[in-house]
């Protein structure tokens, strides 16, 4: 469970996130969408406990985020950031293993090997283990980083644009993995640009506009023609197929 209570985050005196009220339940997959600069990543970093809100507060599990130490946080929530460069030529196996570091010297350490193996399989990178991270393509790096996040095995998983560098199949794979995490009873928040992808997999969609939460609800409720056209300032057409909207720009 993760909850934002009237969260405001300021960057350089400007409110990038403005009084956002949001709760994500256990077992739920929430997609965070909105135009560039709407504050999605900033909100996500506030939800992760990394950035302290200038006003309001964030509850992670059921405790205020600022009461949790770095290591405690690392055992509750994992974060996939957009920046996944690695400074030195570590092997993929080593990078994924680093995801287990919060569990060092705890009973959960015994599960390290299983967690790493499962994460490698799930992210479809088991064949890359002996390769060096620095030699991989952008999409491979993104998937290895996802595997690292999965290996952390936290009840809350936050993914910031996990599909950005991926091909069509791996985009679907990543969202299917996110779906699976939610089905296991984890709380999952995904920042996405592809509205149809968000619509296809998310339980609920949160639409941000200029730092404010413009709409929050099921994909059919949020991803409507008038709302999307207005927020993105681009006329769109929305087709609903199997109860899931498909958003297509009018060209």
């Amino acid at each position: 469970m993760i909850r934002a209570e009237r969260v405001t985050v300021e960057l350089g005196g400007r409110a990038v996130v403005h009084e956002v009220e949001l709760a994500v339940a256990t077992g739920e997959l929430l997609a965070l969408v909105g135009p560039n600069g709407a504050g999605k990543s900033t909100l996500l970093s506030a939800l992760s406990g990394e950035r302290r809100p200038d006003a309001g507060r964030v509850l992670i599990g059921d405790r205020p985020a600022d009461e949790l130490g770095a290591l405690e946080l690392a055992r509750i929530r994992s974060v996939l950031t957009q920046d996944n460069a690695v400074s030195f030529p570590f092997r993929v196996a080593e990078v994924v293993e680093m995801g287990r570091s919060p569990w060092a010297r705890t009973p959960a350490q015994d599960a390290d090997d299983d967690a790493i193996r499962a994460a490698l399989e799930r992210a479809d990178v088991a064949h890359l283990v002996e390769r060096r991270f620095t030699e991989l393509s952008g999409g491979e790096r993104a998937r290895v980083s996802l595997a690292r996040v999965l290996a952390q095995e936290t009840p809350i998983v936050l993914l910031d644009e996990p599909t950005a560098a991926l091909d069509l199949r791996h985009q679907e794979d990543v969202l299917r993995i996110a779906r699976g995490l939610a089905a296991e009873g984890r709380t999952v928040v995904v920042v996405l640009h592809d509205l149809s992808l968000a619509a296809a997999y998310a339980d609920r969609v949160a639409l941000l506009e200029d730092g404010r939460l413009r709409a929050l609800g099921t994909p059919v409720e949020v991803l409507t023609e008038p709302l999307i056209s207005e927020v993105y300032r681009l006329p769109v057409e929305v087709l609903v197929r199997d109860g899931r909207p498909l958003v297509i720009p009018r060209r």
């Binding site: 990394e50 770095a70 290591l71 690392a74 974060v79 950031t81 690695v86 400074s87 030195f88 570091s101």
Partner: peptide, 13 residues
């Protein structure tokens, strides 16, 4: 772990 970058290291505790 720091070689994953500052933010990722922080996220790993």
């Amino acid at each position: 772990i720091l070689s994953l970058g500052e933010r990722n290291a922080r996220h790993l505790g």
